[in-house]
């Protein structure tokens, strides 16, 4: 077992443990902290895969954004909800559905030929971040999905502004 495999196994265990703790916590804020831990574990996996840019973005977006959501959860809910979130009585069905989907996905991915073959070594001498940047804006790359996503986000922003805007009276 190489050191890399050791780190991977530890991180994978950490992610699974944190994810399990997250869904089983009664306290909303604790659940959010475990979610942050799980997402941080995912960014470690990205580092192991030599995807530094994705790792950094994972931390930037998820740990930054989840913190805001967590504080909104604290601000917008009553104290007793935070301490003890109501239990959904239908969790048995949800568990069954989730298990079905998970097994379906595992079978589907298992049939995909690329899974069995080992990935080639990544050429770390190339500037992968720069290549990703070029791919996002070049016409041969992903410029249209990228721009569509930007427009969608902008529309969401403007929409939020319109909802929050105070209505002008007497005009």
């Amino acid at each position: 077992m190489t050191a890399m495999q050791g780190v991977f196994l530890f991180t994978a265990g950490l992610i699974l443990w944190a994810a399990f703790m997250m869904v089983t916590r009664q306290n909303l804020v604790h659940a959010a902290f475990y979610l942050i831990l799980a997402l941080f574990g995912v960014s470690i996996i990205f580092v192991l895969l030599d995807a530094g840019f994705l790792a950094v973005v994972q931390v930037l977006v998820y740990i930054g954004a989840i913190s805001i959501i967590m504080i909104f959860a604290v601000m917008l809910t009553r104290g007793d909800v935070i301490e003890e979130a109501p239990v959904n009585k239908n969790y048995g069905w949800a568990l069954l559905l989730a298990a079905l989907f998970a097994f379906g996905l595992i079978i589907l991915i298992g049939q995909w030929p690329a899974v069995a073959s080992l990935a080639g070594e990544i050429d770390t001498s190339r500037d992968l971040a720069a290549e990703l940047g070029v791919a996002l804006v070049s016409p041969e790359g992903f410029v249209i999905p990228f721009e569509v996503a930007s427009v969608l986000l902008l529309a969401a922003l403007v929409g939020a502004l319109m909802v929050a805007r105070p209505q002008k009276k007497g005009k």
Binding site: L60, G64, A129, A130
Partner: peptide
């Protein structure tokens, strides 16, 4: 790091946390 500047912004969110 080849994403050093972004890394600085990312670890800043631990401070907020």
């Amino acid at each position: 790091l080849n994403v050093g500047v972004l890394y600085i912004a990312a670890v800043g969110s631990f401070g907020i946390l």
